[in-house]
């Protein structure tokens, strides 16, 4: 099975995030590798990453390449750092595989961890506007629902909010163009992210920028819930700086600059947008 086929198979499961699938594929590369030196293994991993990034975007099923790039880059960096930690190649390889397994095992927990950190920001009796179908956001709101009563407004393009209805959360679907109309009664905006960029801004489903701009104008806090493996080393200054797999005629994602975002809920803790670059600098310096 080629790497791309394996990757496609992994992301077919809706519960597996793209960076996690990428890391799983790369772990497979390490396992099968016949390279005898660290340099050789590094080369193999890099070419595997390139192969994944060059593959047909259809395999991502509408999601961007940003998180694929962030996941594989994070992993490559981790491999480099592990090389520095161990002298012996075989031991280093074994350690990489062991740590990789632990990471895969825990990657599902990170959603729960974010929910535990972020649910207190949803206040009793508040109205939360949700845009984009993010699993973390759903987990967070379900967690908040255990102790509080609140209302959720879901934008129409997000799709039918069956998770919220099943949990008994008062939910209302509003048309995307009515976000401005409803914003005055919203208490906070909660979105997920495809990728979190270096300055603390986020790349997310198209329309996030409209919602965030609107919330900013009304001084309503915008919270982003995202796993830390979505932190990407890109620094877009405007929408045209986004990766080229976004179709300019019908964009599926947009970039929301950091000053529209109040806080990010991540598995590393609750971060201000400024803290994101701090985390990335600490890893890559």
């Amino acid at each position: 099975m080629s790497l791309v086929d394996l990757f496609t198979k992994l992301v077919a499961d809706d519960d597996v995030a793209i960076p996690v699938a990428a890391i799983q594929v790369l772990l497979g590369v390490i396992e099968r590798s016949k390279a005898a030196t660290m340099h050789g293994l590094d080369e193999e991993l890099r070419s595997a990453c390139t192969e994944l990034l060059r593959a047909d975007p259809a395999m991502l099923r509408g999601r961007t390449r940003i998180s694929l790039a962030s996941g594989s880059e994070l992993f490559l960096r981790h491999v480099t750092r592990t090389f520095l930690e161990f002298e012996d190649f075989e031991r280093c390889k074994a350690e990489l595989l062991k740590r990789g397994e632990t990471f895969l095992g825990r990657s599902r927990d990170s959603r729960e961890r974010i929910a535990a950190l972020g649910h207190a920001f949803v206040r009793d009796g508040s109205v939360v506007l949700v845009h984009g179908r993010s699993r973390v956001v759903i987990a967070l709101l379900l967690r908040a629902n255990e102790t509080k009563q609140f209302k959720v407004l879901v934008t129409e393009s997000t799709g039918f909010p069956s998770d919220f209805e099943d949990a008994g959360i008062a939910t209302r679907v509003v048309s995307d163009s009515a976000v401005g109309y409803f914003m005055e009664r919203v208490d906070c905006v909660l979105v997920g992210a495809e990728g979190v960029v270096e300055n603390g801004g986020v790349i997310n489903k198209i329309g996030t920028l409209v919602v965030a701009t609107c919330a900013h104008a009304r001084a309503k806090p915008v919270y982003v819930a995202a796993e830390s493996y979505k932190f990407a080393r890109v620094y877009p200054l405007n929408q045209r700086d986004l990766p080229d797999d976004i179709d300019d005629a019908a964009p599926t994602c947009d970039y929301t600059p950091p000053h529209y975002i109040k806080l990010l809920f991540t598995d590393l803790g609750v971060l201000t947008p400024a803290a994101v670059s701090d985390e990335l600098i600490r890893l890559y310096s």
């Binding site: 890391i23 994070l74 992993f75 981790h78 750092r81 592990t82 740590r99 990789g100 632990t102 990471f103 825990r106 830390s228 493996y229 932190f231 598995d267 590393l268 803790g269 985390e279 990335l280 600490r282 890893l283």
Partner: peptide
Amino acid sequence: TTPSLHDVLRG
């Protein structure tokens, strides 16, 4: 101490 991005993979 507080977890960092490095710990995410390192465990």
